[in-house]
Simulated assay, not measured.
Amino acid sequence: MSKRFVVRRDDLRQTRWEDRPTDALEDGNVRLRIDAFALTSNNTTYAAFGEAMNYWSFYPTGDPTTGCIPVWGFATVVESRCAGVDVGERIYGFWPISDEAVLQPARVNAGGFVDGAEHRRELHPVYNQYLRCSADPGYVAEREAEQALLRPLFATSFLIDDFLADNQFFGARTVVLSSASSKTAYGTAFCLALRRGAADAVKVVGLTSPGNLAFTRSLGCYDEVLCYDDVPTALADEPAVYVDFNGSVQLRAAVHERLADTLAYSCSVGGTHWDALGGANGLPGPRPVLFFAPDQIRKRTGDWGPAGLQERLAAAWAAFMQPVTRADNPWLQVVRGRGPEAVEACYAALLDGTVRPQEGHILSL
């Protein structure tokens, strides 16, 4: 039997463990033991936007009222009936919260493969790619935790920065980021801060809760950090782009009302405040536009070619890893947990917003 964590789509606090029989492996398939995966607010965003962005479709439960939240991490091939994928290979990719996964490799090559299962063929290929660690130039065995925790998030951060720069920041010279202590937000702030001293430099303003204020200011990638309650009075009324990682309808309204016609662009990215998500009707200023990272990947793959995109992303990732892993006051502290109870506790803490911003949780079953 295998074990899988499922949630109710209409109430993310309702969860259960589902026992599933270990069926005989079909020709062309591989079975992988999921060794370790990251669980962050990014995953609660997947759940919050599960319907709108098809995240429930990757690992369907067979019950339309429940879903399996996908996570990034590492697995080992334990059984293979697919030529070119061998038992013992270590694979990085997109998994269910489970102790195993069965994939149907297609387009197998030296770097990895895609899952060619019928139900995934219409889903975005970014999430269907599985990388062989032995062939991944970015893989460092001692940094698996950081890769699982930050690599997917930082790719989004890099692409947000690139999207804004590609659009000349919509004429603004200030970028305001909510949930500024979250990993995707401070990754974006880091990329924006790399422009300091250049012609396209912008002022980077972070919005956060009082409890995360000191940590967020200590990062050094924000020019200014404000508490959410200070937005109506302290947020400078100047042309700005708002990048919303928070999702709270109340905060979105406060930013739009404060900036109004000086708000050049409103970019919706995540939902760290998953229980306060709401619509955008009636807001002053521009209507929020959902950012979908694969769209920018597609554009830049056309502009730069796949290798050119990966080179730029790799260079930014290498720079980002320096403050993240430095010996003195690193940005990230890896916290490991094992077993269903550890998964449940971490997931509940993420929903409650009580995970310390310095922490990155790596879990195993």
Score class of each variant (00 low, 15 high):
205 V>Q: 01
67 G>F: 06
362 I>S: 01
278 G>P: 05
51 E>W: 15
265 Y>Q: 12
126 V>R: 14
241 V>S: 04
198 A>E: 12
289 V>K: 15
68 C>F: 03
344 E>C: 08
188 T>K: 05
116 G>F: 02
208 T>P: 00
210 P>M: 05
43 N>C: 00
358 Q>G: 10
278 G>K: 08
82 C>V: 13
43 N>A: 00
19 D>L: 15
356 R>C: 14
152 P>W: 05
3 K>A: 13
269 V>Q: 02
32 L>F: 10
201 A>R: 01
89 E>R: 06
173 R>W: 02
331 W>A: 00
4 R>N: 07
341 E>M: 14
85 V>S: 04
182 S>A: 10
228 Y>M: 05
250 Q>K: 13
354 T>F: 11
129 Q>K: 11
343 V>N: 02
146 E>W: 00
287 R>F: 07
127 Y>M: 12
24 A>Q: 11
242 Y>Q: 06
199 A>E: 11
136 D>A: 05
71 V>T: 03
70 P>T: 08
269 V>L: 06
88 G>D: 09
153 L>A: 12
332 L>W: 01
188 T>P: 04
90 R>S: 11
258 R>N: 11
101 A>D: 06
241 V>N: 03
24 A>V: 15
8 R>P: 07
294 P>T: 06
269 V>C: 06
171 G>W: 09
2 S>C: 13
174 T>I: 06
84 G>W: 07
346 C>Q: 10
174 T>C: 07
339 G>H: 04
130 Y>V: 03
117 A>G: 12
185 A>V: 04
99 D>H: 03
169 F>H: 08
283 L>V: 05
136 D>C: 06
171 G>Q: 10
93 G>W: 00
248 S>E: 05
89 E>H: 02
310 Q>I: 08
203 K>V: 10
44 T>I: 13
